[in-house]
Simulated assay, not measured.
Amino acid sequence: MSEGMGDDTRSEVYAELAGVGPYGVRPGHALITMVEPHPGHEYAYNRWYEDDHYYAGAMAMPWMYAGRRWVATRDLQELRYPEKSAVAQPVTAGCYISTYWITDGRYADHMKWTVGINKRLNRDGRVYQDRTHVFTAFQDHEATVYRDGAAGPRDYHALDHPYAGLVVEVIDADGPEQRAELLEWLRTKHLPKRLAGSAAAMVTVFRPTPLPGDRMTYVKQVEGVDTRLTLLWFLEEDPRERWESAFAGLDAAVVESGLGRVELVAPFIPTVPGTDRYVDQLR
């Protein structure tokens, strides 16, 4: 039996904690983590993440209430741009991405648990080491823009609704003031125009937050805390269906705005939980 797994679970504390603090459904925060398994370790990594880490290292934690894994097969990786990305080097790195929603106002509480549980998982040999974190960050929710207004799923449904694809877009502004202008332009002009008549039902916009000093050493500190925005486009069809017309020019639109530069546009499709589907299509 692993150390610390005795009968004392301090169960009385759970009843006390349930009666205090925010407990809404809004996704006030997110964990977005894009990872590259090392060559030759794709199957083992996938099984570890699906069979253990997705639950013990994520969904079982307090206030992390929704999650979804996504995968980029080789043909999807080759659609990514720009070629020289500040997020992924090379731009094809990071064939898996996981997205999780955290209850608004519960970020600090969740972080205390996640640091503690990851130390325990490492101590117990339950962390798969043959992988590289390409883009991992906790993020604060800034906006959600919907294609259909009040109709359809809300952002808190996004990781449970059976969306057929995800496009991750990362934009860097020149500074904090420019990021505020960029966010306003995205929210009121650019995204409503792009969403109209498209296969994307919504776009959620987040800004990264710094990781705690006692984070795991294999996760690098977050870049662009004051300047970066992360956009998640939730698609009702495979991103390959209308890639050229819908997503190939996102960088040009941002450049034309004069408010920032696109550092990553990357399409994904959902994994099939409990299977190794797509693992043989990563390379």
Rank of each mutant, 00 (worst) to 15 (best):
I32R: 04
R120N: 09
H161G: 01
D109T: 04
K220T: 08
S2G: 01
H141Y: 10
G40N: 06
N118K: 12
D148T: 03
I171D: 07
Q281I: 05
T9D: 10
D238G: 10
L183S: 08
Q281F: 01
M202A: 11
Y55I: 13
K112L: 05
L31M: 08
F138D: 01
D51T: 09
S257K: 06
G67S: 13
H157A: 05
Y55M: 09
E169N: 10
H161A: 10
D124Q: 14
A30G: 03
T99K: 04
G94Y: 04
V13S: 13
K189I: 01
E223V: 00
A30V: 10
E237H: 11
P62Q: 04
V255Q: 15
D51N: 14
R123P: 01
Y54A: 13
M216H: 12
L17A: 14
A180K: 15
A200W: 01
E169S: 09
P208V: 06
T271C: 09
E83F: 14
D7Y: 06
V134M: 11
R80P: 00
A199G: 12
E36N: 02
V20S: 08
D160M: 03
M61H: 14
M202C: 03
A58G: 07
K84L: 07
M59V: 09
V145Y: 05
A56Q: 09
W243C: 05
N122G: 15
D214L: 15
N46W: 06
E263W: 03
R215M: 02
T204D: 07
K119A: 06
D7M: 10
T33W: 02
P208T: 09
Y163M: 01
G24L: 01
W48T: 05
L182V: 03
L121S: 09
P239L: 02
H29S: 10
L231K: 12
V13C: 07
A151T: 10
L76D: 10
T204W: 02
D226V: 00
A252C: 00
Y45F: 15
V145E: 07
E263A: 10
L264T: 03
